[in-house]
């Protein structure tokens, strides 16, 4: 790929890196890699010698990326802006965006015309984020991508009170010691994170429709429990973790607010 009319968006998160490339109005490439301990090497692997007109970086590693790839035209925007742009592009009717990522949970309220009106992020620790679920899946010895399905096989709902990852693990361990089914514990853990998320949604004054993005949106139990708590259906993009990278690229394309809603659903281009 060597097209200088193309614009890339890269979202360097704490757990994964997503890269998308737009050529004109078409999304021509979307790839993903784990962040690892060497995010820059991973970025390079994803970019794989490609050259683009410009790259917009977002996510935790945006500054590192912008500082390291000085020969490219790189700009950086926050995840808040990127998710807002991406979600609004994919779903022009969206009014609230929820992103549960590896170590951050973000809730973004959009004004009717699409601009960010208010946002909330979780505090400095990873309580109530993807990392929490990952840690707990490991504790219950369930592969992360099966954890949601596993929790959906629960037959009762138990309350896990600790939101701190470390305390919640102790709580889960004592439940196991009492003979509680691991599926029920898994459900309890999902409930804990969603309850916390719903409180954040209420704080920003959530408006429907809600777009649920970020890696945790892949998890069917998280989606189900969220819809139950909101008593409304939520929109999950086909590739929920690509939303930030798409928003970053759109920023680079000069696509501000109020985009034409005609264009590609990323799933269609896959």
């Amino acid at each position: 790929m060597n097209d200088l009319s193309s614009v890339a968006g890269i979202d360097i998160g704490s757990r994964s890196i997503e890269l998308v490339v737009f050529e004109g109005e078409s999304l021509i490439r979307q790839v993903k890699a784990p962040t690892t301990f060497d995010p820059l090497a991973q970025c390079e692997k994803l970019m794989d010698g490609m050259s683009v007109k410009q790259i917009v970086a977002t996510g935790y590693g945006r500054k590192l990326f912008a500082d390291s790839f000085r020969d490219l035209k790189v700009t950086a925007i926050t995840e808040i802006q990127a998710y807002a742009l991406g979600a609004r592009y994919l779903f022009p009717e969206a009014r609230t965006v929820l992103d549960i990522g590896g170590q951050d949970t973000k809730v973004i309220l959009l004004a009717p015309h699409g601009k960010v009106a208010k946002f909330e992020m979780n505090d400095r620790c990873a309580a109530g984020t993807g990392k929490f679920l990952e840690f707990m899946a490991t504790a219950l010895q369930i592969p992360l991508d099966e954890f949601g399905e596993f929790a959906l096989r629960s037959d009762k709902r138990i309350q896990i009170n600790s939101m701190c990852t470390v305390f919640a693990e102790s709580e889960a361990t004592s439940l196991m010691a009492r003979g509680e089914r691991p599926e029920n514990i898994a459900m309890g853990l999902h409930l804990a994170i969603i309850q916390r998320t719903v409180a954040m949604l209420r704080r920003v004054g959530m408006e429907a429709p809600l777009v649920f993005a970020g890696g945790v949106a892949h998890n069917p139990c998280a989606r189900k429990v969220l819809e139950e708590h909101l008593n409304a259906s939520v929109i999950v993009p086909a590739e929920p973790d690509m939303v930030g990278a798409i928003g970053a690229a759109l920023h680079g394309m000069g696509k501000g607010w109020g985009l034409k809603p005609t264009i590609l659903h990323p799933a269609a281009s896959n």
Partner: peptide, 9 residues
């Protein structure tokens, strides 16, 4: 991140 997002907003 929060402050930058606020400034963008």
């Amino acid at each position: 991140t929060r402050v930058e997002a606020f400034v963008e907003m």
